[in-house]
């Protein structure tokens, strides 16, 4: 459709084509349906608590988690040789995903004294085993990358996050 092969930039959304406005009207209607349903639900409990978690989750990602990832990226650029950096980055992505998903089970805040079938395992140990396996896989990948011949062409583009 386009001869625009070079443009891989982000952010080239449609600015107001017919498809966009059809989707916008339908989508905003569905959003409104959800919001109205929530505000009218008798059993919702605290709307303020819902709003706090909704906005809180967004802020924790955009203002805490993402900047932390940027900071880690910067540290990696200075500390890790470029040849093994992909292996280190990959290890951190996988281990980080696993650690995040493990937070509620390792924390175990949902445990109930009358129900030992809920959260029956030693999740700290489970997480340690999982992370150890991921680190081992990452170490193997890094060792293999270090033995590969260096790239012929030095990277042109600025390094970074």
């Amino acid at each position: 459709m386009s001869t625009d092969h070079a443009d891989t930039r982000l952010g080239h959304e449609d600015d107001g084509g017919r498809l966009f406005w059809v989707c916008a009207v339908v989508g905003l209607g569905v959003i409104g349906f959800g919001l109205a349903g929530l505000l009218n639900a008798r059993l919702i409990g605290s709307i303020a608590s819902w709003a706090t978690y909704l906005v809180g989750g967004l802020l924790v990602h955009d203002a805490v988690l993402a900047p932390i990832v940027v900071a880690i990226s910067v540290v990696l650029i200075y500390l890790v040789p470029s040849r093994i950096r992909p292996a280190v980055q990959g290890t951190l992505v996988v281990a980080g995903s696993v650690a995040l998903v493990a937070i509620p089970v390792v924390g175990g805040w949902g445990r109930k004294p009358d129900n030992p079938t809920l959260l029956p395992r030693d999740y700290g140990l489970g997480l340690a085993i999982a992370i150890a396996i991921i680190l081992a896989a990452g170490a193997i990948a890094a060792a293999r990358a270090a033995r590969r011949p260096p790239p012929r062409r030095p990277p042109e583009r600025p390094r970074g996050w």
Binding site: E13, D14, L19, F20, W21, V22, C23, A24, V26, G27, L28, G29, V30, I31, G32, F33, G34, L35, G37, L38, A41, I44, W50, L54
Partner: peptide, 16 residues
């Protein structure tokens, strides 16, 4: 109810 809001947002996003 939040699921409806997410899916509504997804519909707008797909259009964009």
């Amino acid at each position: 109810w939040t699921a409806w809001m997410v899916i509504g947002g997804l519909i707008v996003h797909i259009g964009a």
